[in-house]
């Protein structure tokens, strides 16, 4: 039962991380690649960490009453918070730096930042 839940979480996480890497290969320019890399890796990693937390909670309550399981769970959950807080900021900085050094978005139908940065 619990193995299935953990397996589903891990499968979702790994599939989305794989999708991010395929996106890096398939998309034409830096901005669309940042799209794929940021969103999919954040989401995939959340699910992988969720699998860890599920496993830690299950082990504490049903296998062995060892507080180190709770420690593992809490520390993994903190990883999610820091990842969600920092990943979009990194993507924003990369995108802005790319635009500032004059890389035009590939096939853009509109570019409002033309001559502004």
């Amino acid at each position: 039962m619990i193995e299935w839940l953990i397996g589903i979480f891990l499968a979702i996480g790994v599939i989305f991380n794989l999708l991010a890497s395929i996106g890096l290969l398939r998309f034409p320019d830096v901005y669309t690649r940042i799209h794929a890399a940021t969103k999919c890796t954040t989401f995939g990693t959340i699910f992988i960490v969720l699998a860890t937390v599920t496993y830690a909670i299950y082990s504490y309550f049903w296998v062995e009453k060892d507080p180190s399981w709770i420690t593992i769970g809490i520390h993994s959950a903190l990883v999610v918070i820091f990842l969600v807080l920092t990943n979009p900021v990194g993507a924003h900085a990369l995108g802005r730096a790319a635009r500032k050094s004059g890389i035009l978005p590939y096939g853009a139908v509109i570019d409002e930042l033309e001559g502004r940065l």
Partner: peptide
């Protein structure tokens, strides 16, 4: 967002732009 990106990665159907 992730389902959207998955769709665009597989089909490659994009129409990008920078809007204000």
């Amino acid at each position: 967002a992730n389902l959207d990106v998955a769709y665009r990665v597989i089909t490659g159907r994009i129409k990008p732009g920078i809007v204000r």
